[in-house]
């Protein structure tokens, strides 16, 4: 998937350039990979359609937005993943949003015109448990 490879290279460059702690850089890369992979693989968005990603860094807080023109999809409304009782019974998919919840400090969604806008915040003062 060339889009995701380009995203990885760009995110590594951005997080290195911002001088983020390793744990926060990992969290930003993970959550944005999951958000964009969901759009690319499951949203029905046409291959050539753009996905816009912005990252802002201020006062130790990273704010990332992902905007796409796919049909409405609000990941904040996806039910929390229940702990599986066994390997046999566990679902192998649908983990991406679970990881975003674990690794971001906040996830917000809005439908803006014909676009989905996902905003993720990463705040060391509200360290997600997953960073510990």
């Amino acid at each position: 998937m060339p889009e995701l490879e380009r995203l990885t290279t760009w995110l590594q460059h951005v997080t290195r350039g911002a001088g983020l702690h390793d744990d926060m850089a990992f969290a930003v890369q993970l959550c944005l990979e999951e958000a964009v992979a969901n759009i690319v693989m499951y949203s029905g968005l046409q291959e050539a359609a753009p996905i816009a990603i912005e990252i802002a860094h201020s006062g130790g807080i990273i704010t990332a937005t992902v905007m796409d023109g796919a049909p409405p999809f609000d990941p904040t409304q996806v039910p929390l993943r229940e702990k599986p009782a066994s390997l046999e019974k566990t679902r192998v998919g649908e983990l991406g949003i679970h990881l975003i919840r674990l690794y971001s400090s906040e996830m917000r969604y809005e439908r803006r015109g014909d676009h989905n806008l996902l905003t993720l915040r990463f705040d060391r003062a509200k360290t997600p448990a997953a960073w510990a």
Binding site: L30, E33, E34, L87, E88, T90, V92, G93, L95, G96
Partner: peptide, 19 residues
């Protein structure tokens, strides 16, 4: 050096197959 949900998915599927 990095693990995403798809990586976990591959591990879980492999574990299910082995089981």
């Amino acid at each position: 050096t990095f693990m995403s949900s798809y990586g976990i998915r591959v591990l879980l599927r492999g574990g299910k197959i082995a089981m």
